[in-house]
């Protein structure tokens, strides 16, 4: 199986995020980038498929701070090749990024492939999700929020499982090539010892490809950004149990939880 995994770096929310003086973007002074969590699961699912059926796992990632670390870690885990797309600006918008990915897939010689896996969502997705848009552009089959991919080598049939509410799962048969948005891999992303990552850094390299920006791909313009006010201490609700319960219900309703 030839699998391409799309990886994306997103702001690390362990660090306090700050809004830039323009009021519409993140202050990058202390901003750190980390591999988007569900992309990490997409990588794991790809590695599992490779272990079961052989083949190659290639990584494609927009260039971003700290992306090399993530790519080397992925190579150390067992991916075969890593390619960065140079010069992408996060503010370009998902559609422009997808258009660039499509070009990069061919300039970096990643096609044909059987599967393209990526995270079902990234925490900075503002104007669309990569997996469906990419599938649409490539005219490949597609499903997202996937948590299992199975390939039956004897019949050549690929089945994909999606989780629905209440723990119900739906199993689909899907024709390849396909783009899948992975929610979670069958098992948690593996650990890779630092020594292995260091060895990968010494012996392997990351390719880079440049593709022109796609014209006429409007991005949404952010008017303003704000941080929800953080509470240092809980707001205390007082009264007799019934009264408190009533107030709590209001809180739950206001949060759309009833």
């Amino acid at each position: 199986m030839k699998i391409v995994v799309l990886l994306k770096m997103v702001p690390d929310v362990v660090e306090e995020l700050e809004i830039a003086p323009d009021g519409k973007s993140l202050d990058t002074t202390y901003l750190r980038m980390i591999l988007n969590d569900s992309d990490n699961h997409a990588l794991e699912e790809a590695l599992l498929l490779k272990e079961r059926h052989g083949g190659k796992v290639c990584l494609l990632a927009p260039d971003a701070p700290e992306v090399d670390d993530a790519l080397f870690a992925a190579l150390a885990k067992g991916a075969d090749r890593a390619v960065k797309i140079a010069g992408i600006d996060a503010a370009e918008g998902t559609r422009a990024v997808v258009a660039r990915i499509v070009q990069a897939l061919s300039t970096a010689d990643l096609l044909p492939a059987d599967l393209i896996l990526t995270g079902a969502q990234a925490i900075d997705d503002l104007d669309g999700l990569v997996a469906p848009l990419l599938a649409q552009t490539l005219r490949w089959s597609h499903l997202s929020v996937v948590n299992q991919v199975r390939f039956d080598a004897s019949t050549g049939v690929t089945t994909v499982t999606k989780e629905f509410p209440g723990g119900l799962r739906a199993e689909f048969e899907i024709k390849l090539p396909a783009v899948l948005g992975i929610q979670s891999a069958e098992k948690p992303p593996r650990y890779v010892p630092v020594a292995k990552v260091r060895a990968a850094m010494k012996s392997l390299q990351i390719d880079s490809t440049t593709v022109p920006i796609a014209a006429g791909m409007p991005a949404l313009e952010i008017q303003s950004m704000a941080k929800p006010s953080a509470a240092g201490h809980a707001e205390m609700l007082e009264g007799l149990p019934e009264a408190v319960a009533g107030k709590l219900c209001d809180v739950l309703a206001a949060h759309g939880l009833l």
């Binding site: 702001p11 929310v13 900075d124 503002l126 303003s224 950004m225 704000a226 941080k227 929800p228």
Partner: peptide, 16 residues
Amino acid sequence: EAHTVLYGGKVEAIVR
């Protein structure tokens, strides 16, 4: 005008 949540709910953005 839409209010959206970004970065796992750490930021709210307004777009039009």
